[in-house]
Structures are given as C-alpha cells and as structure tokens.
Amino acid sequence: MAQPSVTEERLEHLKHYFIDSDQQFEASKMGMWIFLVTEILFFGGLFLAYIVYRTWYPELYLLASEELHTFWGAVNTVVLIGSSLTVAMAIRSAQLNQIKGLIINLYITIGLACVFMVIKYFEYSEKFAKGILPGAHYSYEGIAHEKANIFFSIYYMMTGLHGIHVLVGIGLMVWLVFKAKKKVFHSGYYTPVEITGLYWHLVDIIWIFLFPLLYLID
C-alpha cells in the first residue's frame, strides 16, 4: 500500500472498473510506457533516414552542420535537462503532498520549455532568412553539395516534430497547473503529473540525441 496518510481516504479519482488506486496508477503508467514505445519508433523512422543518408553522404553532414550553431544547441540542451529536473521535482512535490511546490516547479518547467522554443524560433528564422528553407523551397548557395536540401529536410523534420512535442508538453503542463490549483492532486493521486513527466523526459531524451547528431559533427 502507499503511505498511509489522511489523504488515503480521498478516492474520488478512482474509476469504478478498477479495484484500488494502485491498480489504476500502475495501469496508467504502463499505458504511458507503451505510448512512449510508439514515440521511440515514430522518431526512429526519422533517425533511420538520418543514418541512411549519413552513411551515403558523410561529407554532406560535415558541411551542412557548419550552418548550425553549436552554442545555441548546447544552451537548449541545458535548458531541456533543467526542465527535466524541475518536472522530476514537481512529481516529488506531488508525492509529498506539497501542492505549492508542485505548481512552482510546473511553472519553471513551462518557462524553460518556452525558452527552448524561443531559441528554436531564432535559429529557424535566421536560416529562413538565408534561404535555408525546407524541401523544394531550399535556395541557399553556401553549401557546396548537391544534396544539401536533403540534410535540411531531415533537420527540419526532426527538430520540427520535436518542437511540436515540446508545444504539446507545454499544453499538458498548463493543464496540470489548472488541475493542481483546483486541488485535484495529492499524495494518493498524482497519476497525470507522473505520466506527463514521463512524456517530458522522453522529449528531453530525443533532444539529447538530436544535439550531437545535428550540431556536433566535426
């Protein structure tokens, strides 16, 4: 059993087809892990495209990654790892029944996610200005390789889909803040916080791979 405490009595979250909170919590967490499996394979397709083209044109990757700013990539890595930390702290606060701490940590996480997106926005707009546009609109002359458009198609697909996941994460976190303010969560029930945290960590992990694969090619 979970920690016996006063809040143990609160069972309004328990669905009738589950026997107890633990069964419900475990089922939700397993469901989230299965969803993460699908996410890994979803991004896996893009990593496959990346790897196939990198084995075909290693010199293209060397040339094209010059256009990406390692510094801002590194800053974004630090920002996302920081947000992973605050999400983990948010879950800890929920487990300890500290609703105020939960809300503060969620706010910091949302803030860091927004910083990530703002940096991404400046990176994108700088490239758009140069003519490094996705797909057939590509018009940049600065890379001496005929397949430069393919590298940036892969770049935009990977970072774009990752960015969409960050936006979804921000939305989920805002929703969690609303719920937390309504005093929905307590140490006996914090499932949505837990599984949103799992999702957010996965978004972080994908960036952990995108950073060296796209920015750090020397």
Binding site: G44, G45, G135, I154, M157
Partner: peptide, 28 residues
Amino acid sequence: ATPVLAITLLLLTMERLLGIGIFDPALG
C-alpha cells in the same frame, strides 16, 4: 509497427506538401 507507418505517411505528406526530397529521386 504502426508508429513507423505514421512517420512514413507523414514524410510522404511532406514530400507532396513541401517537396522534402527524402523519397523523391527528382530531388535527390
């Protein structure tokens, strides 16, 4: 398996929408 179909069809949609060229020999 299904997530890989999802990314495949998304790439194909992007191929038609933006011409990303990953699958289209005309674009490399």
